[in-house]
Design a protein around this nucleic acid. Sequence first.
DNA 1: AATACTTTTGCATTCGAAGTCATTATTAAG
DNA 2: CTTAATAATGACTTCGAATGCAAAAGTATT
Lengths: 339, 339
Amino acid sequence: MDKKKRVTSYDVAKAAGVSQSAVSRVFLKGRSVSKKTREKVLTTANELGYKPNAIARMLITKRSGMVAVILSSRANINYPEVLSLLNKRLAECNERVLLFNLDDSEGLDEILEQIWTFQVDGVIALAAHFDNESIEKFKDHNIPVVLYNRVVLGQTASSVCVNHEQGIFQLVTLLDKQAHKDYLVLAGPTESDVANERLECAIKALSAKGHKDVPILYGDYSYDSGKQAFHQWMKDNKAPTAVVCSNDPMAIGVIDEARRNWGLRVPEDLSVVGFDGVSAVAWHSYQLTTVKQPLELMTKAAVDILLEQIETPDNPAQLRVWSGSLIEGNTVGPANPKT
Amino acid sequence: MDKKKRVTSYDVAKAAGVSQSAVSRVFLKGRSVSKKTREKVLTTANELGYKPNAIARMLITKRSGMVAVILSSRANINYPEVLSLLNKRLAECNERVLLFNLDDSEGLDEILEQIWTFQVDGVIALAAHFDNESIEKFKDHNIPVVLYNRVVLGQTASSVCVNHEQGIFQLVTLLDKQAHKDYLVLAGPTESDVANERLECAIKALSAKGHKDVPILYGDYSYDSGKQAFHQWMKDNKAPTAVVCSNDPMAIGVIDEARRNWGLRVPEDLSVVGFDGVSAVAWHSYQLTTVKQPLELMTKAAVDILLEQIETPDNPAQLRVWSGSLIEGNTVGPANPKT
DNA sequence: AATACTTTTGCATTCGAAGTCATTATTAAG
DNA sequence: CTTAATAATGACTTCGAATGCAAAAGTATT
């Protein structure tokens, strides 16, 4: 009385006095079935509690109805929200999310193995730092990929991105208007492509405003690393008047460290900007000035592009870039160097 | 040259000069294959790029290797971390996470439909408020379920929980030691079973210390709702000296509101405690006193129990409860009523 | 009422691996 | 060297739904 009691299309067919094909067709849209048999099948299916077996369907149709979503948990605090939005959007299109965590425990190779065997229809990769080699593998296996917030150089895979350059430029411009001279850049982990890009953009933007040779600190995107990096700097150097951080938690770490341990007021003595616009930024004592990513648009686009690639694999890869929107919080003020 | 080029076990068999069964056995552990054929098969499989098709395997073995994880995004800020831990642990046991979001968009019924058709091996439900009826349905379909942080009355499904009663009792005891008299309880959404349980525990614990008829405010677990609830209260009433909140973000909302708009110092004028021990609590300006859930243990147990139920479905359901650990932050101080 | 045309239907096959069982190769024991 | 026991192998069937195709039923036209 265990698993074998599952009702199959044959059972329904027999009970309804029709063929298995008929049952199958009833549960598929756009197949020609007479109203009479449709009803007959539907009622007996209901009585028996029949539900089509998705596995069997996958095997014959070669569509699994599953999309692999690969994420590296630490990389970006937005990911829970992104994941939820992606899931919702995919569900609307009848695709399910099969989750993969690209962390220390499971290497990329293991994950790729799994992805091949599970015959997923497509892959959405959240800023996991794929080498181009891995992306090529997806091509070999005919599995469409959409990269989320990752810049491709070879442009073999589609991707959706926030415009880091534009966003960071806005932030730097804001700071520059306040006549800041002593900058500090707090970059993310060097293994992360996104982090590196943000760093470059910051340097470029500052440079464009005439601020060359701005010192660079490195963190790992976490709150603690922001605190620590700023602490290290302050031990041996004089305070900057503005810190450009590669994400929000680090920025908040800097603010806390500055306020608590170095007697710096934000924004009076020190201006700090972040990036991403995570929801915690709204928490009151911070009111961080940052750039918010349009997550809804980006996730929707990621799904749309992926489905398009699934339907018509020959379509060329595409890149869609969104501008982030500046959120003027309360962490930027006029330059006020402490001598 | 599209999908049909997938290499099957037959292709490998032919190329290696053995039978399909042989190939199959090579990729299964514990089957008797001679070393010679194993190597032969393995090398040709490698050459051809053969990967076993998980879908076909699922169909015949009736094990999908997938576990459905159902979560409601808003309910608890811990969930991203829980999800990541569950995924990691399940991956170690060769199970994949198929994700379901129980939100406004997709109703429970749709999700259940999906779960039946996908033939998942089991389900982990994160505090989604299931009625007992739904749990019965899982029983009917022979799909083991483990509930995460949800109390079952009928006890037909296994569950892992943090001990709300004990945790909240610790917090209340801490406050009571500081001679607080004017309490406020900030409860979570009334639809949430967990929220209701936490509320009850708070009432009970306060009552045990001799504080009856403590006023109750309601929020929706979000930061904003905490702010707002406290704001509403303060408009018409005198300030309490202690607020017991049902989760951390609301507690932080209360703190911000109290500090910013009502000139209350925390912890000097107002003591606030939360619940959950989310990582953001470490952020410096807060240092919230709270109770932390042992997520690693709980997620590990959830997976272990689920797998056990999958292997031996006749085992009885079990309940495992963990004590949370008190985190003494800096938001609890001696009672200091403002007259 | 006979013809042509469209819609329904069922049969048989397919997807790709795994399990059953009988057969053969290999090793161990006598 | 024979017999008994074990290990390895392949032919065939199975899982459950989808689909091409041909036959059957239904509809429209004259």
